[in-house]
């Protein structure tokens, strides 16, 4: 009997120690599914938030596993900022369920899906897996049109102010400051990108829809036969043949994608490959949203075949 009491005491003491040792912080914990949203949260939240990015630019956001470390992070999040539109369908629902954090469940203020605040391009007309790994709601890679960032920044500020009303004024000030700089930058980018208008390019995956739409560039061929299905040599042969009839000035590849299919095509056509950062951290220089677009435009302008 004495032994049991002692054990219970020890258990209670260790649990108490565990709770005491936990950092009690007033800052808002934000779980960002992708680095672009982590960067946006940093712009809007400033000192008031602590943000964690679940993925890096080297990882394919479609193919993440619900790792233990991600469950642990989601458990402590006050806000989850994700792309939505089924981009994270393979892992986010599992994370949310395993973490069982009531604050960030879908439908709660702490669950923010960026794609709900912009209109999506390329909504499939035929919902059939024979079309590949399609997204029913439309193309989710929305962050590469800076006007979308503007809209998402506004909506995200409102969400952050709802969750953390004490710092609402600070978030709104940060937003105004960010948007002022952002609008100036958009003007600069758009002036600079005039030369890229109507330029035909080959893409690897449907990751560039919004970038091409914004800059008015043309996608003339895609290396993936269907979204999410890697190209076979036979399919690349077809792409090669199609390029006999129409020209392309560049092959766009994201940092996380395999460069092999693009290299295959480059060797046979001489069309230059442009490795674009795609998101924050996709190249050393692309360390915030401004630099991401600076770098993307710079790569495009220096990389395309004249």
């Amino acid at each position: 009997m004495h032994g049991i009491t002692l054990m219970l005491k020890m258990l209670a003491t260790s649990l108490l120690l565990l709770f005491v040792a936990l950092p009690v912080s007033a800052t808002m914990n934000v779980f960002a599914c992708e680095p672009e949203w982590a960067s946006l949260v940093e712009e809007l939240g400033g000192e008031e938030v602590k943000v964690f990015s679940a993925t890096t630019a080297q990882q394919d956001p479609h193919r993440i596993q619900a790792r233990p470390s991600l469950i642990a992070k989601m458990r402590r999040a006050d806000l989850a900022v994700c792309t939505g539109a089924n981009l994270e369908i393979g892992w986010l629902p599992v994370l949310l369920r395993r973490a069982a954090n009531p604050k960030v469940q879908p439908g709660q203020p702490g669950y923010f899906a960026a794609t709900q605040h912009v209109s999506l391009l390329d909504k499939p007309t035929r919902l059939d897996r024979a079309e590949g790994d399609i997204h029913a709601a439309g193309d989710p890679h929305v962050h590469l049109n800076p006007h979308n960032i503007t809209r998402i920044a506004r909506a995200l500020t409102n969400t952050m102010a709802t969750i953390d009303p004490q710092n609402a004024v600070s978030y709104q000030q940060n937003r105004d400051d960010f948007l002022r700089r952002w609008q100036q930058a958009i003007k600069r980018w758009e002036d600079r990108a005039e030369s890229l208008r109507n330029l035909p390019v080959v893409t690897q995956h449907k990751s560039w829809t919004y970038l091409l739409d914004w800059l008015g560039m043309q996608e003339v061929a895609r290396l993936e036969p269907k979204p999410g299905i890697p190209p076979s040599t036979a399919y690349l042969g077809q792409v090669l043949e199609s390029l006999q009839h129409k020209s392309a000035n560049a092959i766009l590849v994201a940092n996380y994608q395999s460069p092999k299919p693009a290299k295959w095509l480059q060797q046979r056509t001489g069309i230059p490959i442009i490795m674009l950062p795609y998101t924050i951290g996709g190249s050393n220089d692309a360390d915030n949203l401004f630099r991401l677009f600076d770098m993307t435009l710079e790569q495009l302008q220096t990389g395309v075949k004249p």
């Binding site: 993440i64 619900a66 393979g90 892992w91 599992v94 897996r129």
Partner: peptide
Amino acid sequence: SLGAHGAHRF
């Protein structure tokens, strides 16, 4: 596998 997307479990 047909229908809903499966989970990428660890």
